[in-house]
Amino acid sequence: MYLAVAVGGTWAFWLPAIALGVRFDSAVGLLLLLVGLAVPGVSGIAFASLVYDERGRSDFWNRVRNPRRVGVRWLLVILLVPLGVGVLAGALDLLLGGPGPTWGEAVTEFGVNPLAVLPTLFFATLPPILEELGWRGYALDRLQLKRSAASASLVLGVVWALWHLPLFFIEGSFQHDSVGVATTGFWLFMAGIVALSFTFTWVYNNTERSILGIIVLHGWVNFTAEVIVVPDPAYYGLWFVLAGAIVAIWGAKTMTADDDVPHPPLPLTR
């Protein structure tokens, strides 16, 4: 039910933008974009409040606020993995005869126009917060109650990818202006989100289900991808390699060294 509400609620604001020909870089379009972005997180908070008891609700907000759940080792993982994927993908593309990595507009135009960094900072902050309060903050826990970590990652990854679909039809969005519909980049983007879902679950399950850690990871993935630009096949290909390595090394059941998937606190029985 949550997944239907999150996707349907977002599309309720984004589909009218398509029908009316509204651009996301207009005032009305920006409002529709932001409200649609907020739906997964707001819905996640609402569902957590309705489904969980006081212990579960307290656990939810502790996962948002408590950095100790992440720890130094996994903070390094969060910071180094996206950066490593970008650098290695650029080097791999260069070795295969491609153009290799280039700096994004936030870097190349910063000296002339410091405001050029604002879109990068936006994608690295607000969307991760608004999305992850729901995707990992609520939905992943519920999926892992009856599914393995790998299966839950696949289901959530597919839904997460489909959630982005209207953006490809709205002018002013990155997906419309830079990727396009039914292009090679389109299919790589959609499949790449599914691959990213596995890495997000791996980090989530190994950081005591930290929502804060996932927000940082999501934001850092967005930021590094905007700053270090590499061809899509090498970039998304490495995320698939990483997803496969995670499942092979840590196992499909939990993606951790533990035998059981971490779960939210169960309601107290009387």
Score class of each variant (00 low, 15 high):
residue 200 F to W: 14
residue 128 P to Y: 10
residue 187 W to M: 13
residue 204 Y to M: 13
residue 119 P to A: 13
residue 99 P to Q: 14
residue 213 G to E: 03
residue 124 A to F: 07
residue 212 L to D: 02
residue 131 E to A: 09
residue 219 G to T: 06
residue 198 F to N: 01
residue 195 A to D: 05
residue 152 A to G: 15
residue 125 T to Y: 10
residue 192 G to I: 07
residue 123 F to T: 14
residue 189 F to C: 09
residue 139 A to S: 14
residue 97 G to I: 05
residue 192 G to S: 10
residue 98 G to H: 13
residue 112 V to A: 12
residue 106 A to E: 12
residue 99 P to H: 08
residue 106 A to S: 14
residue 122 F to G: 06
residue 144 Q to W: 04
residue 156 L to K: 03
residue 103 W to D: 06
residue 151 S to A: 15
residue 175 Q to V: 09
residue 137 G to M: 10
residue 151 S to I: 11
residue 208 E to L: 12
residue 188 L to D: 08
residue 186 F to C: 04
residue 191 A to D: 06
residue 134 G to S: 11
residue 194 V to K: 04
residue 178 S to R: 15
residue 156 L to M: 15
residue 106 A to D: 04
residue 193 I to V: 15
residue 157 G to A: 08
residue 93 D to W: 07
residue 139 A to T: 08
residue 152 A to V: 14
residue 105 E to I: 10
residue 162 L to M: 14
residue 99 P to I: 09
residue 121 L to Q: 10
residue 117 V to D: 05
residue 165 L to T: 04
residue 156 L to W: 05
residue 119 P to M: 15
residue 141 D to C: 13
residue 179 V to P: 06
residue 116 A to Q: 07
residue 113 N to G: 01
residue 106 A to K: 00
residue 225 A to F: 10
residue 180 G to H: 11
residue 226 E to W: 09
residue 139 A to D: 02
residue 185 G to I: 06
residue 143 L to C: 06
residue 147 R to A: 08
residue 212 L to T: 00
residue 141 D to F: 07
residue 95 L to Y: 10
residue 141 D to E: 15
residue 191 A to H: 06
residue 208 E to M: 07
residue 227 V to Y: 05
residue 196 L to A: 01
residue 163 W to V: 00
residue 113 N to R: 14
residue 222 N to Q: 00
residue 116 A to K: 06
residue 95 L to R: 03
residue 191 A to Y: 08
residue 196 L to E: 02
residue 91 A to M: 13
residue 179 V to A: 08
residue 223 F to N: 00
residue 185 G to W: 07
residue 175 Q to F: 08
residue 109 E to I: 00
residue 187 W to T: 03
residue 187 W to I: 11
residue 170 I to G: 05
residue 201 T to P: 00
residue 166 P to H: 03
residue 175 Q to L: 13
residue 148 S to Y: 06
residue 109 E to Y: 05
residue 114 P to M: 09
residue 193 I to A: 00
residue 112 V to S: 13
residue 180 G to P: 03
residue 173 S to G: 13
residue 146 K to W: 15
residue 158 V to G: 11
residue 154 L to G: 09
residue 111 G to V: 14
residue 120 T to S: 15
residue 197 S to L: 10
residue 100 G to T: 11
residue 200 F to R: 02
residue 151 S to Q: 15
residue 134 G to C: 08
residue 210 S to C: 01
residue 226 E to Q: 13
residue 138 Y to G: 01
residue 161 A to P: 10
residue 135 W to D: 01
residue 145 L to I: 00
residue 104 G to Y: 02
residue 108 T to A: 13
residue 192 G to P: 06
residue 206 N to R: 11
residue 205 N to I: 03
residue 122 F to Y: 15
residue 224 T to A: 13
residue 144 Q to P: 10
residue 127 P to H: 07
residue 209 R to Q: 12
residue 144 Q to S: 11
residue 94 L to A: 13
residue 176 H to K: 14
residue 172 G to N: 12
residue 204 Y to C: 03
residue 224 T to S: 05
residue 104 G to H: 03
residue 190 M to F: 09
residue 200 F to L: 14
residue 192 G to F: 03
residue 185 G to S: 12
residue 107 V to K: 02
residue 209 R to E: 08
residue 116 A to I: 12
residue 91 A to G: 03
residue 202 W to M: 09
residue 187 W to H: 07
residue 227 V to K: 01
residue 186 F to E: 05
residue 221 V to K: 00
residue 108 T to D: 08
residue 202 W to N: 03
